[in-house]
Design a protein around this nucleic acid. Structure first.
Lengths: 353, 353
DNA sequence: TGATATTAAGGTAACGTTAACACAAAGCGT
DNA sequence: ACGCTTTGTGTTAACGTTACCTTAATATCA
């Protein structure tokens, strides 16, 4: 009972011949450009409804040489940090009549490239890239930026004469988080979420190292621990489990740390679980600082001290910069904006009151 | 110092005339269809590289009348539940050579429709919809399904002769969660995350109500509380803050509940915070069940009893059903798959060991 | 050796839309 | 009544690609 094939959708010309006018007239009714008499508009609209006509966006985009669509490439989609960015970008773009397509690239340079390509294939007018930087991805991105596509990167290292960049000062964020722990008197401070070898790619870890060095606290590599992503050279997404496992490792050291700076809030939460299981008190026996200020951070026990990034603002700025580049085809020097992070002190580092 | 305008990207014809051959030959090299001599292939590839040529996907899609791209519309992107679905869909599609574009529609029917339209405008071959059901959105979706676009819905009510549907049994999930609390001897069981008036749209709440009724526990509407989304009729996304506020409200009742079924894990975490602040012990003084089994649930204190949905499987099934519809243009009767949820018992309801 | 595949190209015509131009009729100020 | 703008419609030619058809040279087989 199911042999019928779906009919092909009606085209502009179908509507035109149904009404008995030129396709151009229908086009004018649909797009709202140019003069059409009210009478004609009504006749056309009637036929449009009757034939269930929908404009073919692909043909339209081909002709107009623009799509009014922007792509956003994010990794680590589970992180509310990415979500908030995506939402801010979407709101900002939609206020300007632009659509947003999101591509996820969670694991590799290959996925980055495939996301870029699929967006370029659809002739997006611009791309916002917020994945972690990597060699091959950057090469492909440079080619794209060289062509007609506007590119803005968020929180990602990338140098190109026509690519704007916006990021938060993760280095200082990491520095201040660590500084905060040092100020509280801690000397043995662990870092959870990435291996020491990844420090070149991770500003937060660099900030941590720099703070220690500044206060002449020797860096102990055994206190720096993360997942097994060191293989790729790209520090991957860091989860609760990694935090949990890493913390257990650190707690088993002969001379365990008295404080932890975790690479993000998820890692921090995992670490807290391990600390609790070990029967230790936070912050009395062990202080913890996270990063990102996810909604969750307010609801851990105790509430998590963390570093907040202004994601909403980053999203807005990124969209505006991108639209600026899309609208003016002139080559302009790249803009680099670095926003400040903010240390939010809660009860996982100090006992309030 | 920035007056130059970006040059237009090279086209197939540009490459063709650079090499001195017909465009068709270049097309064959690029697409890999048809016969091309090795010598010619090399010459063309050289020119392709030299001119930085990239195939124009829009033109290609127009000609081929397909895009090998699928759209996924999700709300509630912050929920790992959505993330896992998105990842499963992406992996499954990419194994078949299809691209995925994700649209977020977090708030309203209007955003649903705008997401659908922007996908249809780009001639995606199919759409997977995983937002909450709503009247206007459904109407637009029906039009789309009537036309040439394959549609599959996930966890969403929608009836259409050519739309497959896949969901988990949220009703039974809610029922079993509540049953579990009843089995533990609880009589006053609260529901957090939606208002009583929203029960028509929320299977989890229906399951809760049904379990109470079955065990002849009277439904007390004061124990059912959520955000302020009742205005729209569509239960919105439920956050930690809503859980926190709602729990505080319930705790202030003269005859407070001894157990809570929370609409999702986030809400449950918020509720836990309020319980802790009130100086009550979980599960001794108050038991809590969540929903979704987010990674977080393992790391709350105590670990959260919750209901797991097989998101990965849903994503795979959805992709496969969609590809099936895309590949066979025949109209076939709709498939409805309902998967089981699984109650994961942890320490927020029972003291283990 | 002739008949038939196979390989290697080129030519033409769309896919469905809209920009640009052309043309005619109506409004309108002086 | 004259030019000048506004309004309403049609015609043409792309946008960049590929499906389909044609041509021709070479390879393969009975």
């Amino acid at each position: 009972m199911s042999e019928a094939t779906k009919r092909k959708p009606a085209t502009l010309s179908d509507v035109a011949s149904a009404v008995g006018v030129a396709p151009m007239t229908v086009s004018r009714v649909i797009s709202g450009n140019g003069y059409v008499s009210d009478e004609m508009r009504e006749k056309v609209m009637e036929a449009v409804k009757r034939l269930n006509y929908r404009r073919n966006g692909v043909a339209r985009n081909l002709k107009r040489q623009k799509t009014e669509t922007v792509g956003l490439v994010i990794g680590d989609i589970s992180n509310p940090y990415s979500t908030e960015l995506a939402n801010a970008v979407r709101e900002s773009l939609s206020a300007h009549g632009y659509n947003l397509f999101i591509c996820i690239s969670e694991h590799s340079a290959k996925e980055d490239i495939s996301a870029f390509d699929s967006l370029v294939d659809h002739n997006v007018d611009g791309i916002i890239v917020a994945t972690r930087s990597n060699q091959e991805g950057n090469e492909r991105l440079a080619e794209i930026a060289d062509s007609n596509v506007a590119v803005v990167v968020v929180g990602r290292d990338f140098q190109h004469p026509s690519v704007d960049s916006i990021s938060t000062d993760n280095f200082t964020g990491g520095f201040e988080a660590t500084q905060h722990l040092i100020d509280l008197g801690h000397k043995r401070i662990g870092f959870i979420g990435a291996a020491f070898e990844n420090r070149k790619n991770l500003k937060r870890l660099q900030g941590y190292l720099s703070a220690l060095t500044k206060h002449e606290i020797p860096v102990d590599e055994r206190l720096i621990t993360g997942g097994r992503e060191s293989l790729t050279g790209v520090p991957g997404y860091s989860t609760e489990s990694i935090g949990y496992e890493s913390m257990k490792r650190l707690l088993s050291l002969p001379n365990r740390p008295t404080a932890i700076f975790a690479r993000n809030d998820f890692t921090a939460v995992g670490a807290m679980t391990a600390v609790n299981e070990a029967g230790l008190q936070i912050p009395k026996d062990l202080a913890i600082v996270g990063f990102d200020d996810t909604p969750l951070a307010l609801h851990t026990m105790p509430a998590l001290t963390t570093v907040r990034q202004p994601m909403r603002i980053q999203g807005q700025l990124a969209s505006e910069m991108l639209l600026g580049r899309i609208k003016s085809r002139d080559v302009q020097d790249p803009i680099k904006r670095v926003l400040d992070c903010e240390l939010i002190i809660r009860e996982s580092t100090v006992t309030l009151r």
